[in-house]
Every structure is written in structure tokens, then in C-alpha cells.
Design a protein around this nucleic acid. Structure first.
Lengths: 205, 205
DNA sequence: CTAGAATTCAAACAAACGTTTGACAAGCGA
DNA sequence: TCGCTTGTCAAACGTTTGTTTGAATTCTAG
């Protein structure tokens, strides 16, 4: 009942997010999580009921925010007239990359997200689909008006490609090493490259 | 010592590949693997020494083939003159997508690969880097001569983006559903879209 | 201040984990 | 046939897993 910032529940969520990201859902044990959060082992089951519920909670909290950020950014991009393709793409890409900078400055969540895609777990897949579906549709609709030469099916193909590249970049998987650049600078650079590349890909044909 | 197709060792490799893909390295137990392979539990430690060695073996076998296929396809693409950007891209993309069609027609390996990217495990990361590094360099060099307006650093950025989209597509993560199309048809369609999109992205600016 | 709810804690639970063992069977060159 | 390697098997090893328990503690409304 305590909405405090450093409550037991919140500390568990933070530690779980970081450990799930680095070791996976199966690979990170509750003992690691509770030890890192400096709470008792039983606290997870007390506050969340089970490990699976904890996993879902970690995902849900972040996804809700990402979806809200993307939706808001899309509306802002569409407010300008004429709307620019780069701005709509930015509304899809930048909130996702920004999500990597949580309170602790870690990239935990995005690695979790990328990992969740890799989990064949159907419950997680459909969970993602249910939470992402309508946002993806909104973006595809917006892109459709900007790119009238592409039909719906073709737009979904290209959004698939963009989302793949974005997911990959979110988790900082690539070979690109940021030398001297701060995390924010690197993130900005990544966003610019993604938007530039994706714009050309979308305008093709 | 038996190179038989259905030897204990091979059955373990096949079962491990499928189970690692669907449940992750930590999530798939040796009991699941040996049960699925219909061999004794101790067989894994007898033939591979440990679970970690089994993981490495599963990855190594597939990566060796993928690297060889890509290198060969690149040479074929460069043999034509003038070399075409789409052909070089195809040499990077098509062998990776084709790797999804193993003997059992499953997409196990590529999901493993995608999952490996998501594993923060540094040993696996460097393992991948050591096996992929020189092939990636060869492709970047080839692309550099075709795209003289892009410097080395910019090429790595764009190859990062392409590889991300490819990895995503390899694991069949996207929202695109193949309706009625066979796996091969879908793979061809995916390759065509990726190559088309990436060509435009690479030629940009 | 006090009764009762909410939370934390050490300890233990059964189950599942990767690995090891030693017995036993199969294959094979001498 | 012999002796030896190779492979398979059931059983057990010690850990670690997620979860539960019941007592102790902290918090909070009356």
C-alpha cells in the first residue's frame, strides 16, 4: 500500500528488471533478485504471488509507458501539417530507444523486450501482441497516408523490418561501439541513423 | 566415432537445438533434451562433457555452415561484373534465412541465434564475434566499393541496422503472417522485402 | 495506548537441476 | 575366444530452484 519510491515492491521490480535483462527469465533466480534488492526471499511471493507474476508485472509497467509515449509522440507528429515521414518514424523509434534510459540509466528493459521476442513463450507473445497491436495499427495508418504508393500489406512488411532493426538497436546488440560518446549521444545517433535508413526504405518503389 | 545420421550424439544435437530454441539455454533442461532425443540422461555428459559444451556445439555447427554459405555467396556475387548491390545483400541475407530450413524444416537454429544475441552472456557474445567478425568485414569491404559515398563507419552503422532486421525476420518474430504460402515461399518473400528495403536504405544520402 | 492488519524474516519444503558413478552390454582387433 | 574400448543405463550425488510456513516485527486506525 506504500507508493514510496524505495519500497520493497519497487526495489524488487528494479532488481528483477536488471537481472532478467542480463540473465533471462529462467536464468535469473529469485534468490539473485531478492539479494540484489536487499529484501527477504519470501518478499517476491508475498508481493507478487509468484515469479511469473513478477515477470509479467515488470513487462507490463514498461510496456504501458512505451505505448503511451509512442501514442503521444505520434499525435504530436501528426499535429504538424504537412506531417513529415521522419517525424512519424521518430515517434515510433525514439520512445523505444529512450525507454532504455530508466531511472538507473541502465538498458535493462529494452534487453528484456528483445529477449521476450526471443522467448518462444506463447503467453508472452500474445501478451505483447495485445499490448502493441493497436499502437502498431495507428502507426501503419499514419504511414499509409504519407506513403500512398504502398498498400496495407506492404506497409506491415516494412514496419516489420523497421521494428526488427529497432529491437536489435535497442538492446545495443550491434557491432557499433560508442567511443567517448555518452549514452544519450549514442542514443541520438542511433535514432538518427535508424530514421534516415528507414525513411529511404519506406520511400522505395 | 559413429557418423551415423541417427546416432545418439546426433539425436541429442537435434533435440537440443529444438528445445534451446523454444525454451532458451537455461530454460531447457538436460532431462527434457534427453527425453526428447530418447537417450539416457547421462549421454549428454558422456558425449559432450557438459551442458555448456553442448550449447557451444549446437551453435558452432550451424555458424560454421552459415559463414561458409555467406562467404561463398559473396564470392559468387562479386564474380559478376559489375557487381550488383542487391546481389551482395542477398549473399548476406539469403543464407541466413535459408539456415532456418534444417533437416526437420524447423526454424530452431535461427531462433537460437536471435536468442543468443539477447543473452547477455559475454562468452557467447565473443564466441559469435570471433566467428562472425571476418565475414562481416568482408561484406563491409564489398559494400564499400559499391557505395563509395559512404565511409567505413557509416557502412557499419547500416550493416548493423540490416543485421537487426534480418535477425528479427530470421526468427519469424514479426506481425506478418504467411497465409497459405509455404515456408519456402514465405522465406523468398521475406528475403525480397529485406533486400529491397535495405538497398534503398544503403543508397540513401 | 492498543488491537489488528500488514509486512518482514529465518527456516524449511518438495521438486528439478547438472553431474557423477559403477554396473552392464555391445563392438572389435588380435 | 580373449581383452579392451566404447557406449548405455538406472541410480544417486549435492545444489539450486520456486514456494510455503509460522513466528517476529512494523505499521496504522481507533
Amino acid at each position: 500500500m506504500n507508493p514510496e519510491l524505495f519500497s520493497t515492491k519497487q526495489r524488487i521490480l528494479d532488481a528483477a528488471e536488471a537481472l532478467f535483462a542480463s540473465h533471462g527469465f529462467a536464468g535469473a533466480s529469485l534468490r539473485q533478485v531478492t539479494s540484489s534488492a536487499q529484501v527477504n526471499l519470501a518478499a517476491v511471493n508475498y508481493h507478487f504471488g509468484s515469479k511469473e507474476n513478477l515477470i509479467n508485472e515488470v513487462l507490463r509497467l514498461r510496456l504501458d509507458k512505451l505505448n503511451a509515449d509512442r501514442t503521444q509522440a505520434l499525435q504530436a507528429a501528426l499535429a504538424k501539417s504537412p506531417a513529415q515521414l521522419e517525424d512519424v518514424l521518430g515517434a515510433w523509434i525514439r520512445p523505444a530507444l529512450a525507454a532504455s534510459a530508466n531511472e538507473k540509466g541502465s538498458t535493462a528493459f529494452v534487453r528484456i523486450l528483445a529477449r521476450t521476442y526471443a522467448e518462444q513463450n506463447e503467453r508472452l507473445r500474445s501478451f505483447l501482441h495485445d499490448n502493441y497491436g493497436h499502437v502498431l495499427r495507428d502507426f501503419t495508418t499514419a504511414l499509409g497516408t504519407l506513403l500512398p504508393h504502398l498498400d496495407k500489406q506492404e506497409l506491415y512488411w516494412r514496419m516489420d523490418i523497421i521494428t526488427g532493426a529497432l529491437t536489435f538497436a535497442m538492446a545495443d546488440f550491434g557491432a557499433i561501439k560508442r567511443r567517448g560518446a555518452s549514452a544519450e549521444q549514442h542514443r541520438e545517433l542511433t535514432a538518427d541513423h535508424l530514421i534516415h535508413f528507414a525513411s529511404a526504405g519506406l520511400r522505395a518503389k
